[in-house]
Simulated scan of single mutants.
Amino acid sequence: MTHIGFNKPYLTGKETEYITDAVASGKISGNGKYTQWCQQFFEQKYAFGKCLLTTSCTDALEMASILINIQPGDEVIMPSYTFVSTANAFVLRGAKIIFADSNTENPNVDASKLESLITPKTKAIVPVHYAGIACDMDMIMDLANKYNLYIIEDAAQAIDSFYIGRDGVRKALGSIGHLAAFSFHETKNIISGEGGMLVINDKQFASRAEIIWEKGTNRAAFFRGEIDKYGWVDVGSSFLPSEVIAAFLWAQIEQLNKIQEKRKIIWDQYYEGLKKATVKGRFKLPQIPNYATNNAHMFYLVFESLEKRDECISRLKNKGINAVFHYLSLHKSPYYNEKYLGDDLICSNQYSDRLLRLPFYYELSDADLKLIINVIKE
Rank of each mutant, 00 (worst) to 15 (best):
F90Y: 04
C135Y: 01
E214P: 05
N189E: 13
R208F: 09
G216S: 01
R93L: 02
N201Q: 10
L149P: 00
H185G: 13
N148T: 12
N103I: 00
I152C: 00
I125G: 00
A89N: 03
V91R: 12
E186F: 14
S116Q: 15
I118G: 01
H185W: 13
S112L: 11
N108L: 07
F182M: 10
I118K: 06
T86V: 13
S192F: 10
G132N: 10
N88R: 14
A158T: 05
L117A: 00
K96T: 12
S116N: 14
S175D: 10
I191Q: 10
K188F: 01
Q157M: 15
K96W: 10
I133H: 02
N88G: 13
L143P: 08
F184Q: 04
C135G: 08
G193L: 09
T122D: 00
G196P: 08
S161H: 05
A156E: 02
W213Q: 01
N189L: 13
E186P: 00
D202K: 12
I159H: 01
I191L: 13
R170V: 14
F182H: 05
A156W: 02
N88M: 14
S183R: 06
F182N: 02
G174K: 03
R219P: 07
N103T: 07
N218R: 04
N218G: 07
N103R: 09
S207W: 12
A100P: 07
E153F: 00
A100L: 03
S161V: 05
T122P: 02
N148G: 10
S116W: 04
H185T: 13
A209H: 01
S207N: 14
E115I: 09
N189G: 13
I159R: 04
S102E: 00
A155Q: 00
D138E: 10
S116V: 13
I159K: 01
K203Q: 15
E186R: 14
I140D: 08
C135K: 01
K203Y: 13
A209E: 04
A131E: 08
I140G: 01
F184R: 05
T119K: 13
Y130W: 15
E105I: 13
L198E: 02
I125E: 04
I164W: 03
A87F: 02
A181P: 10
G174F: 05
F99W: 03
R208E: 12
F99M: 02
M139W: 11
D154F: 02
E214A: 15
D142Y: 11
A180P: 08
